[in-house]
C-alpha cells in the first residue's frame, strides 16, 4: 500500500513503515527506551529525507515517552529533578541547533553529526555490554549483584539542594549538565537520549531505580516536544501523516514489548539493550566504512 507523504514529498509503503515502527516500539517497550536512535536510521533507509526523518521521529519519541511517564505513575516521578534536567536540556537544544547552523557554514555539520553518532553509540554500547555481561555472569554464579558506591564525584560539587523523591542531596549542576548533553544530542542527532540519560542517572547521580524511568521519560518528553516544535516552526520538516503511522505502530509495539518485559530479568534486558546499541553502531560504521557507490550525495530542496 503506497502512501504519499505530504511533507517528505515521497511515496512510501505504509505497511513497511508500520512494521518498522512496531518493531522499534516493541524494543522500546521491552527495554524502556525511546528508540529514536533506531527509528531515524530506519526511516532514512526507507527513502525519507534525513531532515524529515529526524524531525518526525522526535514526535514519535514524545508520544512514547508520555506513555512511559503515565505508566510509571506520579509517585515515582521526581518533578524537581525533571525540571533541572529540562532546564539544561532547553539550553542544550538551542545551542545544538545554533551549532549545526554554525558548522554548516564551514561545511562541517555532516562530519560532526556522523562522528558524534558513531562515537556515542559505540562508547555507550561497549560500556553497557561490559557492565551487563559482568552482571549476567554474577547472576549465573549465584553471586549477589555488585553493590555500587553510594557517592560519586557528582555528589561532591558544592551548592547542594535536596531532591526529596530521589532521596538525593546534590548540587543541581550535574543533572543540569546531563540535561544539557541530552539536549545537544537531541538537536544534533534527532534522538531522545534515553540510552545515555538512564545509565547516567544510575551510575553518575545514583538515583533510586524506581524514579529513573518516569523522570528520564519526562525529560525526554519535554526535550522531544521542544525539538519537534523547533523543527515544525523553523524548518517545516515534520510530516504529520508519517508521525501518525509511527505513533500508532510504536504504541502497539510498545504494549507488546512491555508484556514481555514483565517476565524478563532486569540484567537480561540491560544486556539486550547493550547488544542492540552495539549492533546499531556496528551497522552504521560498517555502512560508512565501505566505499560509497557514488562519490557525491544529493539533498533536494534545502532551505539554506
Amino acid at each position: 500500500m503506497d502512501l504519499y507523504l505530504p511533507i517528505a514529498g515521497v511515496s512510501v509503503n505504509a505497511i513497511t513503515i508500520a512494521m518498522f515502527s512496531m518493531a522499534v516500539g516493541f524494543i522500546s517497550g521491552l527495554l524502556g527506551i525511546g528508540g529514536g536512535f533506531l527509528m531515524t536510521p530506519l526511516l532514512v533507509f526507507s527513502g525519507i529525507p534525513p531532515t524529515v526523518a529526524a524531525a518526525t521521529a522526535t514526535c514519535h519519541i514524545m508520544s512514547a515517552a508520555s506513555t512511559g511517564v503515565v505508566n510509571a505513575g506520579r509517585r515515582s516521578l521526581d518533578g524537581k529533578m525533571a525540571s533541572v534536567l529540562a532546564f539544561g536540556g532547553l539550553i542544550g537544544v538551542v545551542i545544538g541547533v545554533e551549532a549545526i547552523k554554525w558548522l554548516s557554514g564551514f561545511g562541517l555539520a555532516d562530519i560532526i553529526v556522523t562522528l558524534t553518532y558513531v562515537l556515542f553509540l559505540s562508547t555507550i554500547g561497549i560500556t553497557m555490554t561490559w557492565e551487563s555481561a559482568g552482571a549476567l555472569r554474577r547472576m549465573h554464579q549465584g553471586l549477589p549483584p555488585k553493590v555500587l558506591p553510594k557517592r560519586t564525584w557528582a555528589h561532591h560539587i558544592p551548592g547542594r539542594m535536596r531532591f526529596r523523591t530521589s532521596r538525593l542531596y546534590i548540587s543541581p549542576l550535574p543533572p543540569a549538565g546531563l540535561g544539557f548533553l541530552t539536549g545537544i544530542l537531541a538537536a544534533l542527532m534527532g534522538v531522545g537520549g534515553g540510552f545515555i540519560l538512564a545509565p547516567a542517572m544510575i551510575y553518575m547521580l545514583r538515583m533510586p531505580g524506581r524514579v529513573i524511568t518516569a523522570t528520564s521519560q519526562l525529560q525526554i518528553m519535554l526535550i522531544a516536544g521542544i525539538t519537534a516544535m523547533m523543527h515544525a516552526g523553523r524548518n517545516q520538516t515534520l510530516d504529520l501523516l508519517l508521525a501518525v503511522i509511527l505513533m500508532v505502530g510504536g504504541a502497539i509495539g510498545a504494549q507488546i514489548g512491555a508484556r514481555f518485559a514483565i517476565r524478563a530479568r532486569a540484567e537480561v534486558l540491560r544486556f539486550a539493550l547493550a547488544a542492540i546499541v552495539l549492533l546499531a553502531a556496528a551497522r552504521l560504521t560498517w555502512g560508512m566504512a565501505l566505499p560509497p557507490e557514488d562519490a557525491f550525495s544529493l539533498v533536494l530542496g534545502v532551505g539554506e
Binding site: 514526535c59 514524545m62 512514547a64 506513555t67 519537534a228 523543527h231 515544525a232 516552526g233 504529520l240 504504541a251
Partner: peptide, 20 residues
C-alpha cells in the same frame, strides 16, 4: 508552522495517553 507544530505535539501526547 508553529500552530502545526503545537498540534503535532499535542497529538503525540494524546496518542501517548491513549496507549496507556
Amino acid at each position: 508552522g508553529w500552530i502545526y507544530g503545537a498540534f503535532s505535539v499535542t497529538l503525540a501526547v494524546v496518542f501517548g495517553l491513549g496507549a496507556t
